[in-house]
Design a protein around this nucleic acid. Structure first.
Lengths: 198, 198
DNA sequence: TATAACTGACTGACTGGTCAGTTTAGAATC
DNA sequence: GATTCTAAACTGACCAGTCAGTCAGTTATA
């Protein structure tokens, strides 16, 4: 028997939460292990009790940030509802997700930049986008089957929708005054659907 | 009078070229001043003769990377040709630009991530995107005037096209096997135009 | 021969990671 | 229920390495 109750999950979570905050505010590189230690309420030594290295913290955090989204998408892929319903759920949830993710965007962009140098990070992000595109493709295919859309290449259309969402976020990030992100994603996709409609 | 012919422009260019290469390959942060010195064929001391700091090199490089594009866009904004001609030029040039920029993408994404922490970098990137959107808006407005397009909001349409291009690059970066970028940008915009067409 | 251009050894601040030692929650024993 | 024991949990001073930036001295050229 363990002579103490196991606090390791709680501690890991404490550390990752502190890292997420610090990385977002100061950037992954500028953040010191001592910063994470301080704001997690633990000592530097404890960080190394739970994680092998700063890199291990970065990877664990990548998982923490993206995993819920990937889970959600996988669940929606399996969901037996109709394309229309799924598309509705996807759009509503997607808009909300972006708003929820906003304060972590600096961290996410650090991940994007790191991905060019760290295979595991690139693989993780690829995995995320592929899930996203697969889901969109199903939605569109179902739209075709129901006679709502007309296109001979649902994969292309999925990529277009995915591009619109990613690109809108990107443009908005660097010009937030002139772009209302949620409204634009909606109207952009509307514009596209005009092109898809039979 | 200068006792030597002025080589400072040439040296600065040498340094920035070496920095561009090194930053792209290893990342801005991992690149050492000594790496830049070595591959520029100068000494570390000389780097500091021409630039105040590593940060100064980063900023000068940002300018070197984006300025030609901004120049091109400004010129095209002033160009008296018709919307159709401009759109054609823009599309062709845009595809080529992406191909030309490919090897510098890791550097560009480092800039994007840095933008969250450095006001000057964010301003520069904003400036770039705003020029881009302004140009697109003009092209679309001219398309409306000529009766080719039908929309009551050319700004929205410009943002949509901009999003498609940026987003396609993004998706392609993390899933290059399943996305043919040039072909997709074309077909994506085509799809959108179907929605715009009167 | 004045000075712009250049060099590279050096410095000092910094930081990821280590480790010898301490604390503490609970188990075992009486 | 007090005492002892154990290992997990924790600490922070320290170390070895790193690197941006400096500067005293050298070289090349007009």
């Amino acid at each position: 028997m363990a002579p103490k109750s196991d606090v390791s999950e709680e501690r890991k979570s404490q550390i990752l939460e502190a890292a997420k905050q610090a990385f977002s505010e100061q950037g992954i590189h500028k953040t010191r292990m001592s910063d994470i230690a301080e704001s997690s309420g633990l000592s530097k030594g404890s960080l190394y009790w739970y994680f092998d290295s700063k890199d291990a913290i970065i990877l664990a955090l990548l998982d923490k940030v993206f995993e819920p989204e990937i889970q959600e998408m996988e669940a929606l892929l399996e969901d037996p509802r109709s394309a229309e319903e799924k598309l509705l759920i996807y759009a509503e949830r997607g808009g909300q997700d972006i708003i929820n993710m906003l304060r972590w965007m600096p961290l996410i962009y650090d991940f994007f930049a790191l991905a060019f140098r760290q295979k595991k990070i690139k693989e993780y992000i690829s995995h995320y986008y592929k899930k996203n595109l697969a889901l969109l493709e199903i939605l569109i295919q179902q739209g075709i089957d129901s006679g709502e859309f007309k296109t001979n290449n649902p994969q292309d259309a999925a990529i277009t929708i995915g591009s619109i969402i990613e690109g809108t976020v990107m443009l908005w990030m660097y010009d937030p005054e002139s772009i209302d992100i949620v409204q634009h994603i909606k109207s952009n996709i509307q514009l596209l659907l005009n092109g898809l409609r039979s």
